[in-house]
Simulated scan of single mutants.
Amino acid sequence: MATPHLVQYQGSKRNIASEISSYFPKRINRLIEPFCGTAAVSILAAKQNKVGKFILNDINKPLVEMLELCVKQPEVLYRQYEEIWNGQFVEGTNNIDYFYKMREKFNQESEPALMLFMLARVVKGAVRYNNNGQMNQSCDKRRNGTRPELIRNNAIQISNLLNNRTEFYNLDYREMLLKAQPGDLVYMDPPYQGTSNTSDNRYYQGVDYEELVNALKLLNDKNVDFIISYDGMTGEKKHGKDLPDYLELTHIFINSGKSAQSTLLGKKEITYESLYLSKNLKCVYENRAEQLKLII
């Protein structure tokens, strides 16, 4: 059975989550995601029975509240979403105008089901915010958003995987990392370099490179294992600076498929996601490399 996902979300690691989880240590007390997004990695880890407890955090409060309602009360989220989704088909309603009406309502109320509807209908599942923190992404005019029945099916599956063993937070990632202890695994997927300015409207909040490096050093000092997805390369073009050598990380690249942007430009280039493993996970990487050699 396929791993459930609630809704489209730009930047989700759903397509490479199985590759990421292959570098998990055998014993994990808690999986902590400080930049959880739609929690693709945690959902897969729960499905694979690799982890028993989870902490999901994101600075985007409506996103976390949407996930929490999905996990704790999936039927409530489904019914609320269904009512909003059906509203665009009421006789005499223009579904594009309806989207912008719901976006305005979301910017006033930020309810979980409205967040879900926004993600289901915005272009590429990509949330955008203005300088006042209000969503300003455009509507995808080609589609009506995920059908409620599919939302319900996936929400129930996600709830079955994560309910009663997940904590939810809306904190700065540095505050969340203070909660990490030896035996935990922290998986991080921060906004990438070049999209991380605090004024960049592609993200609710950016992440400073030096602050991130200092946070990773503190995890090393606490002997907390971590994995971080951070930039990568398209074709031969590298994105951003590597994380510094003194962190003693193992740096690998994961093939994430053809670059959509390059395809639009008539090029055939592959995108590779950078994945960094903390120093204690080097043995996991080496063991997996040996296994792959045996398969080949």
Rank of each mutant, 00 (worst) to 15 (best):
P148Y: 05
N220E: 10
Y209A: 12
Q134W: 15
T198D: 14
Y187E: 00
Y187L: 01
L218W: 08
I156C: 04
L178P: 03
G206M: 06
K141Q: 11
G206V: 10
A155M: 07
P190R: 00
P148F: 11
A215W: 00
N154I: 03
D140G: 07
Y173F: 04
A215H: 01
D172N: 04
N201I: 13
I158S: 02
D189N: 13
P182A: 07
M188R: 01
Q205L: 05
D172S: 02
L171H: 03
K141L: 02
Q193E: 10
N131S: 14
N197F: 08
N170T: 13
C139W: 05
A155V: 08
K179L: 09
Y203R: 11
D208H: 05
K217T: 08
M135H: 13
N153D: 14
Q137K: 12
E149D: 10
D189I: 07
T198Y: 15
K179S: 02
L216F: 03
Y204L: 13
E149F: 11
Q205H: 08
L216R: 12
A215M: 04
L162C: 09
I156T: 13
L177Q: 06
S199Q: 11
E149Y: 08
V186Q: 00
N132Q: 13
T195C: 08
A155I: 06
N130D: 15
